[in-house]
Design a protein around this nucleic acid. Structure first.
Length: 402
DNA sequence: CGAGATTCATGTGAAGTATACCTTTAGGCTTAA
DNA sequence: AAGCCTAAAGGTATACTTCACATGAATCTCGTA
């Protein structure tokens, strides 16, 4: 594009009628004022948390529900309101929200507690301190004055699966050590059976109250979509039947409202980019692809080099022969890649773990199978759409300097 | 022919190692009175 | 003498390695019909 062309481009962009009225309303960070079909749950959470306003420690809450059932939104909404009232009445109440899944923020006990302490303005080094010491710093930081603290641990199942349930034990035990402050924990889990695997002692103290968020049905998702899109989009830019279709997409396996909202937002962005006046079903399909693509690419670019090399081996191997691959094959190719790039090869033991992690991330499907006489291994398949494989390869090749 | 033993290739758990980073402590140097 | 800097000592978390044992169905072996 020439300079002149670029000028023109921005000029026309500015003149162009935007399709959006207020895009932020359907972005994932947005906490709406009204949450349809969750009145009951919000009421319950509010009831449980209300004692905080009288400086009585609210019961710990454990919330289950699949993705996109409004768990996070409801908790954020309720805590926000709670904090608002507390502030007006000069009540010392802190709400801390931690998403355990966001890579590297809180994926070990140390990092979680360090993160919490940092929320209270303490400097915690990334490594080197005993975990117990970090707990102490945290205790001291919060126990300075009389206050209530509500800690929201989102996607807590990820954290516990990766480490152990000791973290929860320590956290629930903190209260007995505190003189002034009191903390209350809200755990949010996507995994419905997750709590069955944790220490019963921990479980009973953590889930003094339990809430289950059922999936939305298609009608409810439509409702939510209507509600939000009416604020986000201009009138009449959504093609007839689009919301219904979008809701149907999202309700395919279970009612995932977050996904529905993301779909419609991305569809809108795509339509706008193509200078179209209406968002149509075509865009919805494109959006579905784009979301998946962005998700995968985002995960891959942030992986360490060794992980990339491993994934590259899996991709190469898939090209070579169409049928499924096994750990040993991948390891051989991986070693080749290492020697070509000067990367220090890791052991097969480690690669096995890396493969398992990619499985968790949903980048590959790995199933442990026994081939009888011919041993036992993982049966590995790429789980990324073939369309974006070249893109992934490109990224990895560049990063590995091949 | 069928039950039990064997076998393979790797899964998996535990313990050990390397690295990077932390705090504490003690000694040496500087500085100011 | 007090204050500050530096280096050594002693400690931790994390990512990885090493070691050793666990797995589980295809295949083999061998006793029996």
């Amino acid at each position: 594009m020439t300079e002149k062309g670029l000028d023109n481009f921005f000029e026309t962009y500015l003149k162009k009628e935007p399709l959006f009225l207020d895009k932020s309303v359907i972005q994932s960070a947005h906490t709406p004022d009204e949450i349809p079909h969750r009145e009951e749950q919000i009421k319950q959470i509010a009831n449980i948390l209300a004692p905080a306003l009288r400086m009585e420690r609210p019961s710990n809450i454990f919330i289950y529900g699949k993705t996109g059932t409004g768990k996070t939104v409801c908790v954020r909404h309720t805590t926000k309101k709670l904090q608002g009232v507390a502030k007006q009445n000069n009540i010392q109440l802190d709400i801390i929200y931690v998403n355990c899944k966001l890579s590297k923020i809180a994926d070990t006990e140390y990092r979680l507690v360090a993160h919490l302490a940092r929320e209270f303005g303490k400097e915690i080094p990334s490594t080197g301190l005993p975990t117990g010491e970090v707990y102490n710093i945290f205790y001291k930081a919060i126990d300075e004055k009389k206050r209530m603290i509500v800690i929201v641990l989102d996607e807590i199942d990820q954290l516990i699966n990766k480490t152990s349930d000791e973290i929860l034990y320590n956290l629930t035990r903190i209260n007995s050590e505190l003189k002034n402050a009191q903390i209350s924990i809200i755990g949010i889990s996507n995994d419905l059976v997750f709590a069955d695997n944790i220490d019963p002692r921990v479980k009973s103290s953590l889930s003094e109250e339990e809430l289950v968020f059922p999936p939305y049905n298609a009608i409810q998702i439509q409702d939510i979509l209507k509600h939000r899109t009416s604020k986000a989009f201009k009138n009449n830019v959504l093609e007839q039947g689009l919301l219904e279709k979008c809701a149907a997409y999202a309700a395919k396996d279970h009612g995932d409202a977050r996904r529905a909202l993301e779909l419609i937002r991305v569809a809108g962005e795509l339509a706008e980019r193509n200078n179209e006046e209406k968002v149509s079903i075509k865009h919805l399909d494109m959006a579905e692809d784009k979301i998946e693509k962005d998700r995968v690419i985002d995960i891959i670019t942030t992986q360490p080099l060794q992980f990339k090399a491993t994934l590259y081996a899996a991709i190469l191997l898939k090209k070579e022969k169409k049928n499924t691959t096994f750990t040993g094959d991948i390891y051989e190719i991986y070693k080749d890649i290492c020697s070509k790039t000067g990367l220090r090869p890791l052991t097969q033991r480690r690669i096995s773990d890396i493969i398992a992690e990619f499985d968790m991330l949903g980048i590959i499907n790995a199933k442990v199978i026994s081939k009888g006489r011919y041993g036992r291994t993982r049966e590995i398949n790429l789980a990324v759409p073939p369309a974006i494989e070249p893109k992934i390869k490109e990224i990895i090749v560049k990063d590995l300097g091949l």
